[in-house]
Design a protein around this nucleic acid. Structure first.
Lengths: 199, 199
DNA sequence: TTCATCTCCAACGTAGACGTTGGTTTCAAC
DNA sequence: GTTGAAACCAACGTCTACGTTGGAGATGAA
């Protein structure tokens, strides 16, 4: 039978993603990844160098994919709302991302993988918001970087502490209706924060 | 020498808190807790029953302490802002709480420890917000439970994904000035979401 | 003092994960 | 078809965590 090393790599990465998302770096074992991928342990060490490196690799993939998928916010308050909605949708469709970021927050200290690239990616978005403020299209009572974080908080909290949002909203696993309700609120809230107050 | 079982229990709980906050349930070992507490492993099994039970115990303690410490929001938009500020302060002073909640989010599935009590605690706050809306003091374009979550998101995101907020704000470990800046923004944002729009 | 009880600990067996090694199979280049 | 390199895997030694056990030290009541 022919070798298909690319396929082997892919199977490892997929299995690793599952395991890391579910159990995090510590809770995941190389052995389980290997078993789930139908591959020998040694392949993982050989291809990726070990658990930590593999985790960073998985994380990189998902962060990169997110940052290219979600459009940069634009210049009107309404479009900032749309940006929040897009983010929300993306996170619902890719529930791995937030969990990976959380594992990162909890287990990695010091610089994050790809810290520089990610920083400049965020800087782009912040700059965009700042431009909107200068143009008078967005409220300027928040500094643009802060506004950026506030929006992420409004969007992301639902996924970050789902047990808390469950206890507050009273819904077990949110269905389509509940998700729409949340999404609308997120958009409305982001829009509000970006809307200049008319006095 | 006389026994001091209460002190032994306390030492275990304190050491366990440190370990769980830092490394989470999986990353923490009973052995390290015992060593840090200066106590034999067996004491932990005997007093608390094992790692999972001990983690839940620690979590309970911190959640309970938070829910009694932070006052319930009141009825004007300005006071909702103050509530957000109080929350923010509490989380800065008790950095364990958010991390424990995160470990909970990531590792526990099914009902959370004390789910019922915590649910009714949140329900209280939601009810309070709802009352404010009915009285016309708060904006009513968000359902009260959703408003509750939005505020938590605005306040909590800073601590939940500190690596992300670091990359966005460009500050390494936030000093007093940066914390004040964030705090002000949080208060302002919460106030805004709760303020009725005058058209 | 004695005795039942509770606190405490050293030490154990088991299990699972780690990371590596030696050797086998496949491939492609000559 | 020979040969060298790369992909692959079974198996190993080591280490660390788990949860338990048997017994020693302390206590307080009879």
């Amino acid at each position: 039978m022919a070798w298909d090393t690319e396929r082997t790599r892919r199977k490892i990465l997929d299995a690793a993603t599952d395991q890391f998302v579910a159990h995090g770096p510590h809770g995941t074992t190389i052995e389980k990844i290997a078993r789930a991928a139908g591959v020998n342990k040694e392949r993982i060490y050989n291809y990726f160098g070990g658990k930590d490196a593999l985790f960073e690799r998985v994380l990189r993939e998902h962060v990169a994919s997110a940052s290219t998928s979600v459009p940069v916010p634009s210049n009107s308050a309404r479009e900032v709302g749309a940006y929040a909605g897009d983010l929300f949708d993306y996170l619902i469709e890719h529930p791995q991302l937030m969990r990976l970021l959380q594992w990162e927050a909890l287990t990695i200290d010091g610089d994050a993988p790809d810290e520089a690239e990610r920083t400049s990616m965020y800087a782009n978005r912040t700059r965009e918001l700042g431009a909107g403020q200068k143009a008078g299209a967005l409220a300027d009572d928040f500094e643009p970087d802060v506004l950026n974080v506030l929006i992420l908080g409004i969007v992301g909290y639902w996924m970050l502490l789902p047990q808390v949002t469950r206890m507050i909203t009273g819904t077990g696993t949110p269905g389509a209706g509940e998700l729409a309700r949340r999404r609308n609120a997120v958009i409305e809230a982001a829009t509000r924060l970006a809307t200049p107050i008319r006095q």
